[in-house]
Design a protein around this nucleic acid. Structure first.
Lengths: 342, 342
DNA sequence: CTGAAAGCGCTTACAG
DNA sequence: CTGAAAGCGCTTACAG
């Protein structure tokens, strides 16, 4: 802020800097934008003037001319808004915010829980108010993906968008391999009647983790008993219900691989109410390594998803897309975390 | 988007709408901004043209001239980033995002976990890139409050900023009264050796909830035994530690009022390890009604903070401040939620 | 009620 | 390397 001749505060503009430095506004703009074609002397004068005046570029003016907003949307499309209760979501959101902030790019948080919200957010995005979007949507076939693609807005999804013909970048943990390592671990520790509680069939985690489970059974020559496979919806309650069903159908099971920690919590509850000891009678393995995995007794053996790296990659890829690169996919490895439950 | 004479896509501007409607750009702008001094006929023509062309206002151009950004920051200053693990935070962030979205105002999420981030965010905000800020900071005396105030940026804090001379609006739950209702409830159910685990002394929740505890003891003619008062830092671990201390100092306690659900979880763990039955031997009351309160066995009796209303009020007040109103404070009532632990 | 015009603060060819 | 100038898309007094 500086005072005008009338004593009123107004913010300092490129004009003030130019006058202070004794150069034209064009020159100031050039040093602002990389300092190409600027003499060292002018460069120094401008920088000094910027420091002296406390100049901060007006992004609106800049955006008006460049056509870019220098901001990015974090769009969460989740009808159930369940993601918000998911601890993974926090890590993701925080890490993305910080990775962007480090590049001085603000993150606009958008939540499309209803159809109306979806339309509004889409209009805003397609209005060119953001340069790209980080998309978090647990369910595949989300129309938002193709709509953004059609509007040629760069998108990077978290998790592989299923059944999409749109060309989107995405980064995902290696669900299938993570599931394999868990089931293999259960098998290696002597379990032979291994059940599984899956995620929804229209989510990558639902599909891939089940595939990994089947992989290992086949690999070990174990028969696949379909009655040992029960679907859940990632909620704790669905974990409880699934475990009840399993207890009924297969009282002899000696292990359960659960496709999320939240559901595993529910499984643990039911097992304990059913008088089963964990891990003595039944070993339980989760997926996510969420904070929930630490709060159970015994602690939950689970599969860690590398959320920090996922976030960093998403931001990196989005920026690359914005800069004109083609879409790409990154699959990140998971890690087995041993605690008491298996 | 429309095609130019050269066939290239460019976005539709107010100019296109004006031509389509057969009026001047000034008239289009007037209907965009409330329709004052516009004839019904022109109004209709413009609206039709807007629909036909799919026009969306360019906010950068508008902001450049109005000096307003029509966006708001959600600033989280939390050295430990603990807030992010706090389920309350999710509710708050989500509700604020949606309340703003309903008014078509985007929310910029900013996290100031380190001093460098604090400086960067402050520069951004003071650069006039947002019209106001929703401040979430668990610790009082946060310099950010006075810095924003000095830059005359409208601020609404979540929770009462302690030790601030800055004139900030805030909305808070009635911590003191909430604590009173809990301690009164414990007393009414026959408990006489009521301990408490407090929050940090530099947070409103730490101070006020303890004050409420003391209020009721005085009110009931119970002596205040300082050895029954143990400080925590809102973390689960600090709850465990506090309970250990209490078990040692006052093995005869028959109730604990814990200033947060997360800490109460820790207290429950320690109590159970120490062989105390809840609620038979020791009644436990929490504060927050966070999801954690549902996952304990027994369920946690706690004090619900009205996060939905807090968020709505914060947004309403910030918008009022931006519109020029004076700062104000709103204190919202809490509600006792009975479950199994007390 | 309406149009013509100035101007918001910046970037970017275009000449030098 | 540098300045003068045009122009990004809008709003807002100012005349009519």
């Amino acid at each position: 802020m500086i005072r005008g001749t009338d004593g009123k505060r107004r913010s300092v503009t490129i004009h003030d800097v130019a006058r202070e430095a004794g150069v034209s506004r064009g020159t100031v703009s050039r040093v602002l934008n990389g300092g190409h074609y600027v003499s060292p002397a002018a460069q120094a004068a401008v920088n000094a003037a910027i420091r002296k005046t406390g100049y901060v570029v007006n992004r609106h003016a800049r955006s008006l001319i460049t056509g870019k907003s220098d901001s990015v949307a974090f769009l969460l499309t989740e009808p159930q808004e369940r993601f918000f209760e998911d601890p993974n979501f926090n890590v993701l959101l925080r890490a993305c915010t910080q990775a962007l902030a480090a590049r001085d790019i603000p993150l606009l948080l958008m939540i499309a829980g209803t159809e109306a919200e979806r339309r509004r957010n889409l209009r805003y995005i397609e209005g060119g108010h953001v340069d790209g979007v980080l998309l978090v949507s647990s369910h595949s076939g989300d129309p938002v993906v193709s709509e953004l693609d059609a509007a040629s807005v760069p998108v990077v999804a978290c998790g592989k968008p299923l059944g999409q013909r749109a060309r989107v970048s995405y980064v995902a943990a290696d669900d299938r391999d993570g599931a394999r390592s868990m089931v293999r671990y259960l098998h290696d520790s002597g379990r032979r009647r291994i059940a599984t509680v899956t995620g929804p069939a229209d989510t990558p985690g639902g599909v891939e983790r089940l595939a990994g489970y089947r992989d290992v059974l086949a690999e070990c020559g174990l028969p696949v008993d379909e009655s040992l496979i029960v679907p859940g919806d990632y909620s704790r309650a669905s974990g409880e219900a699934a475990a009840e069903l399993l207890l009924e159908r297969a009282p002899d099971m000696d292990a359960v691989f659960v496709a999320s920690d939240l559901m595993a919590q529910g499984v643990l509850d039911t097992l304990s109410r059913g008088g089963r000891r964990v891990p003595e009678d039944v070993a339980v393995g989760g997926f996510d390594d969420s904070p929930a995995a630490l709060s159970t007794r015994p602690g939950l053996t689970t599969v860690r998803q590398p959320w920090d790296r996922i976030s960093t990659e998403m931001v990196r890829m989005l920026l690359a897309r914005i800069a004109g690169e083609e879409p790409s996919a990154v699959i990140l490895p998971t890690e087995l975390v041993r605690r008491g439950s298996a």
